[in-house]
Amino acid sequence: MDNYRLDKVHKFEEFVDQRLKPDLVRAVSERDKVFEQQKTFSDLRKNIENLQKNSVTSLRTLVNLGSEAYMQAEVPDMQRIFVDVGLGFHVEFTWSEALNYISLREEKLARQIEEYTHHIASIKAQIKMVCEGIRELLQLPTEATLQEPIF
């Protein structure tokens, strides 16, 4: 095999290893973060719906003060709830306002998950295409033309 082909194969392999695979890992990681946010909002929605259904007006709970140190807390008025809207900001909502905000946020997160999924599929397709190019440069038979051994 000539040096030109070997050089091309080496460049394709470097591209896959140094560019496409890290991009794929990063995209999967980002999508997983969005999945976690989606679960958090889903859990919050379920909790608010349960509070509404049971007509809860006050609440006793444990609050994490940090470093897994907890303290008992009593919430005398449950008419309003503070929701983390990002960047360290919390907004005071009524339960119905919070449910509206959560549904909007869940729709946005679902769109982000779909975008990441398409991006991941695109990267995988690029990796497959480059691997097919390497196979052609090396003049290897395709998987369909390989014969299975008879035992």
Rank of each mutant, 00 (worst) to 15 (best):
E13F: 02
E106G: 03
G133K: 05
N54P: 05
G66Q: 09
L87Q: 13
H10E: 13
D23T: 01
S42D: 13
L104M: 11
E148K: 13
A121F: 06
T40V: 09
L65G: 10
A98H: 04
I81W: 06
Q147Y: 13
E13Y: 04
L65H: 10
T117P: 05
S122F: 05
E143H: 02
L62D: 14
L65C: 14
E13M: 08
V91M: 12
L104G: 14
F82V: 01
L51I: 12
L109G: 06
M129L: 09
S55I: 02
V9F: 03
E14C: 06
R5F: 04
A121K: 14
E30Q: 15
D84K: 02
I134T: 07
P141E: 02
L59H: 11
Q38D: 15
Q18Y: 08
D17S: 13
F82K: 12
G88I: 03
R111C: 03
G66W: 13
D32R: 14
E106N: 07
R45V: 07
A144G: 01
N64E: 14
N54Q: 15
A27Y: 15
W95K: 10
L59A: 05
R31H: 07
A69G: 02
V91K: 12
Q37S: 08
S58M: 06
R26I: 06
Q112S: 10
F35A: 10
I102C: 04
V25I: 10
L87Y: 13
Y101P: 12
R19L: 10
R80Y: 09
